[in-house]
Design a protein around this nucleic acid. Structure first.
Lengths: 68, 68
DNA sequence: TATATATGTAAAATATCTTTTACATAAGGA
DNA sequence: TCCTTATGTAAAAGATATTTTACATATATA
């Protein structure tokens, strides 16, 4: 999965820490997701989409090398 | 999270097992998700949405008692 | 009755996500 | 220079998702 979290976060002038607080997770979690260390849980994906005023389908896309 | 997987699966006349095979997971995983034992991973949510010809945002909704 | 298909469930093992604590670097302003 | 803010990263522990194996029930049909 690829995501546009960093892009949308910056458009809203939020730091990773501010976004983390709004989403009720740690800054490390946001950092890991932005840097594609792992994907968020579905619940967190929805929470981030809400905070960033978009949809899960727009915020995430299957990346090129996704084997099905 | 609440989801419409069972509803959409039945509309397409798929058994839990058939859906599981298409999604490359076990039947127990589909069963557990339909019965709200746990949420799927984000990647699986996207896979299921694709198979069921819908979007993640339409297939899942935050349930009433979701505390934020 | 016997067989097949669909579904529910459970325990143990493994994989993945998230937190906590901690340290490091870069950039900006006082 | 010193302090603050933002970001990257890492290891260990805890929480959650998924698989594997197995058994149970219900329904339909030969």
């Amino acid at each position: 999965m690829h995501n546009y979290i960093r892009k949308r976060r910056k458009e809203r002038h939020l730091s990773q820490d501010m976004l983390a607080q709004k989403a009720n997770v740690t800054r490390q979690t946001i950092n890991a997701i932005e840097n594609a260390k792992y994907d968020p849980s579905l619940a967190l994906a929805f929470k981030l989409a809400t905070i960033l005023e978009t949809t899960v389908d727009q915020l995430f896309t299957k990346s090129e090398d996704e084997n099905d």
